[in-house]
Design a protein around this nucleic acid. Sequence first.
DNA 1: TCAACAATGTACGAAATGGTACGTTCAGTC
DNA 2: GACTGAACGTACCATTTCGTACATTGTTGA
Lengths: 227, 227
Amino acid sequence: MTAPSTKASPPAAGRRRKNDPESVRADILAVATREFSEKGLSGARIDEIAEKTRASKRMIYYYFNDKETLYLHTLEAAYQKVRLQEAELDLDHLAPLEALSRLVRFTFCHHAKNPDFIRLVMIENIHHGRFLAQSELIQSLNAGVIDALTNVYARGLEVGCFREGLDPRELHWLISALSFFNVSNQHTFSRIFDWQQAAPENQRKLEDHVTEMVLRYVGTDATLSQS
Amino acid sequence: MTAPSTKASPPAAGRRRKNDPESVRADILAVATREFSEKGLSGARIDEIAEKTRASKRMIYYYFNDKETLYLHTLEAAYQKVRLQEAELDLDHLAPLEALSRLVRFTFCHHAKNPDFIRLVMIENIHHGRFLAQSELIQSLNAGVIDALTNVYARGLEVGCFREGLDPRELHWLISALSFFNVSNQHTFSRIFDWQQAAPENQRKLEDHVTEMVLRYVGTDATLSQS
DNA sequence: TCAACAATGTACGAAATGGTACGTTCAGTC
DNA sequence: GACTGAACGTACCATTTCGTACATTGTTGA
């Protein structure tokens, strides 16, 4: 996230310069991410973002044209970051059951560690996905997950440890639902049922349960002995 | 929701009157529910609520003191409505498996039919459950669900169709997660994966899958033949 | 070196927005 | 029928908030 603050032409490491557009832009985006994810599109204030930035309000309108465009860039950056991390885990060298288990645990933990991203997605849903619809970038980013799952599922079918008739997209839906809800509804759920859901021990339990749930769902009757 | 517009002392059905405080209040609350659930606490505008009401802005501040209080009442009313509907289904006369299945399907359908409620809960989570924390009313409303589940689970254990070692609260968590996500993330999920999730046939499929998932999770190895 | 353009600071404007002051009408009571 | 408090309408105020005009400084290429 912290840009190297170099420009294309003369990178020259030690040189001092005052204008540093890329780092200013990155800084604005970082602050905007925090503010939007915390308070939503209508709740976040441009002036407040400006204050928390090294730059001034003028710069926000210079690099991003208006509030909504800034929000859109924030959303795109968040999705990009996620996909980058997701690309790192390669499941092909693992046995199907392990691969699936690992994918579930990864998703669960990843969401738990990135509440900002979750909140941005919540907020985007409140806006009926109107901004996401404008972004070709995000649309193009997300094919990978389904591909990976399709792959693992097909291999599991061959080996015979998964049951037939499941749709990888629906599988992804299930994994997402459980991992997402864990973050998105933590506050209301904790308060209503007086349960410290965020506590590490409970998070570990939930991770186990979620993993088991998915494995039980895809597993054939014989498969019930993994974690 | 539509109050009978009568007052305590002389209900006298056909009588004409101009002042009708209870109905005005209810009207404001109904409009506020739509506006807040659509645009969030910061996104909703008091002036717009006032316009869409039979009453005037003055009345909003007369009955509810300020914007946040109005929002809180909106939230409370929404939870109350849910709990009322939930109280109607009695599971005690059903066999454990059927009872659980019915509870899952009920929750799934209920959430799907009440997106306003879901959105309010999303919004409340964006605000870290800060308003819910203020409301003793909501806190007190929600014991029932867990009780019902505890009951069903205990009966299932006796009969031997459920496995041991599960926590009713976590069970509720799972059911909620799947049913909630189905509504809350419909927009982003549909757009990203180009999948008409809201289409009736897909909703029916998801309902089946969610039900099966929960049953598979609680079921002992022998139990795999219900829908 | 100097023109030309990119990057940035300061101050301000117009509309939106939450909230209120003040006056009026309705409905029950003595 | 006058009185009182609840219910309601209109107009208004102060502040916030998005966005911009205008001036200034840095940077690069000829």
